[in-house]
């Protein structure tokens, strides 16, 4: 493989190493940013990394391995940026990589997307009655009517037996009622 005379061999070797290890890194690590980093910082990191690894910079390089490596890095950097710039996807992804399945969740897959959609549905309820009762329970809570909320949620769970959100809320209310 001919080396590129314009590029320091150490830098080229490092780029190839990074390309090989991408599958072990999460999107925050790829962008070199903290989990809490604000959106503007992610954008700046994205620009900076593209300056370093943009395939166009190596377009005429004789080192084909290096060209393949930077292209791979640039594509993954773009992927990381696209997912993290979307607040909903970012929230879902951040939870996923903190969970027990971290190793399988380093890339945002169609499974993540399906789950995210599912969660959004769960949030409000899957059935018309479920949604209506959830809204009624919310109203009760705003009025401080814990018993009313408990009743509505119990009914809601008759329609959506495995709605985690309903269950969690109901448990919270029961705990509050018990503490009184």
């Amino acid at each position: 493989m001919p080396e590129d005379p314009n590029i320091h061999p150490d830098w080229a070797a490092e780029a190839k190493d990074i390309a090989d290890s991408l599958d072990l890194l999460d999107y925050f690590q790829i962008l070199g940013a903290e989990i809490e980093a604000p959106a503007e910082e992610l954008k700046l990191r994205y620009h900076q990394l593209q300056r370093n690894y943009h395939p166009d910079t190596f377009f005429s390089s004789p080192d084909l391995e290096l060209r393949a490596a930077v292209t791979k890095i640039a594509k993954r950097v773009a992927e990381a940026y696209v997912i993290l710039r979307d607040p909903q996807k970012r929230a879902k992804y951040t939870r996923d990589i903190a969970g027990p399945e971290r190793a399988q969740r380093l890339r945002y897959s169609e499974d993540s997307e399906r789950e995210a959609r599912q969660e959004k549905v769960e949030e409000l309820g899957r059935t018309a009655q479920g949604r209506k009762l959830w809204a009624k329970a919310q109203d009760c809570l705003r009025r401080g009517d814990l018993q009313g909320a408990q009743r509505d949620l119990q009914t809601a769970l008759l329609f959506e037996r495995d709605n985690e959100r309903f269950k969690t809320k109901l448990d919270e209310i029961k705990a509050q009622l018990g503490a009184r």
Partner: peptide, 13 residues
Amino acid sequence: HALLDNQQSTYLL
């Protein structure tokens, strides 16, 4: 020009 010149200094995303 940027693609053919190693001193490229613009990045199109």
